[in-house]
Write a protein that binds this DNA or RNA. Structure first.
Lengths: 201, 201
DNA sequence: AAGATTAGTTTCGAAACGAAATCAGATGTG
DNA sequence: CACATCTGATTTCGTTTCGAAACTAATCTT
């Protein structure tokens, strides 16, 4: 195998390039790239996933580093810390009003705008291809994948209600489009079971 | 505008997520993420773009930081330094044989494999959508875009020959799929002209 | 009850980074 | 030509980020 550049490699590199180009936008705010990623994660994760460990896993870093990032956001007043009721080791972080507000300056908005200007068919293709890629990559790497409840195998829709078989409970409608650490792709992928679900707090 | 999560935002976040998830793969090699990005860049940039400045622009960092990363790769013996013939301030870095070899352990390979397993239509859509996104994003940000010669406005194909209007010279066939710092999207985008082209050395 | 796991945090050293200063060569203007 | 300006590359310095490891506490397993 020589160093030939294939079309596939070009795509892979473009994804990395876009991801990096989008992260630092200098919107004048005072958050670093890691802090933006964390704030974004806590804004978009469902309530069982808004923990330091889940964020560390999502961000492919250690829990220690994740703790530091979160601590800073808490000092800034963008995140509020809540202790879980069922497991006293666990904590959950939610965006404060001030955190919601600063999210409006998310530098990722520029990328979103670029996506909005894409031709509709291409955007639909992205909407289909990227989650699939995330699942495949997690499979190859043998790590946990992230995805939204609506795309998850544990999810089932019964008429007007939404149910998650993993936490064995009804889902809030808002959670349908949210990230979950217990995500399992609908295809034939392996589950990553770290134990079994607890009550939702 | 409240904090509602749109499908477009999901796509943007997925791109960032994939870009980060792909970067650190722990292939057992001794390169950091920044060093991998640099090595990959010098492996895939055409010969007028294999300079510290071009890499700094590509990687959205300063020339100083870029110099350090490159210096390390040179100490490792992965990059060779060549002084440009036409402009004696300028230097060019090329992969050594040893650099070519270590590229086989590129952690990005996992993402490439995932892309390879995509259904063909989706892969083609990515191949079309991502360069377009890169151009749009650069446009919004008012920065320089990167793209391959084959997608570039300066490029024209005359039968068996390939020509670049920017350097006013024939293109090596291998450069067609290579990154160029003088890239201009085919659409109606602005040019970033830092002067005018010199001879190719 | 004892050991193993898991969640979260803290500490510490290495790496990345931005800003600024330096130097050499190239370009532009009067 | 002389002078100012600009560009490409590098070095230094201080700050920030990050990963690894150590640590505490709670939970799970047997």
């Amino acid at each position: 195998m020589d160093g030939k550049i294939t079309s596939t490699d070009e795509i892979a590199e473009l994804i990395v390039y876009l991801g990096r180009a989008a992260r630092g936008g200098d919107t004048g705010s005072d958050l670093t790239a890691a802090q933006w990623t964390a704030l974004r994660f806590f804004a978009r994760a469902n309530h069982v996933s808004r923990t330091p460990s889940a964020f560390a896993s999502f961000h492919a870093t250690t829990r220690g580093t994740a703790s530091q990032t979160i601590k800073f956001l808490m000092l800034k007043g963008y995140l509020a810390r809540h202790e879980a009721a069922d497991d006293r080791r666990s904590v959950r972080f939610d965006l404060t009003d001030s955190g919601q507000e600063v999210m409006r300056d998310d530098p990722l908005r520029a990328l979103s705008e670029a996506i909005d200007r894409l031709e509709g068919g291409l955007r639909a293709a992205l909407r289909q291809a990227l989650p699939s890629l995330a699942g495949e990559l997690a499979n190859i790497r043998d790590t946990v994948a992230f995805g939204t409840c609506g795309d998850c195998r544990h999810f089932s829709s019964g008429g007007t209600t939404s149910y998650c078989a993993y936490v064995a409970a009804e889902l809030a409608p808002a959670d349908l489009g949210r990230l979950c650490i217990n995500f399992a792709a609908s295809g034939g992928m392996k589950l990553a079971l770290p134990g079994l679900p607890k009550e939702i707090s």
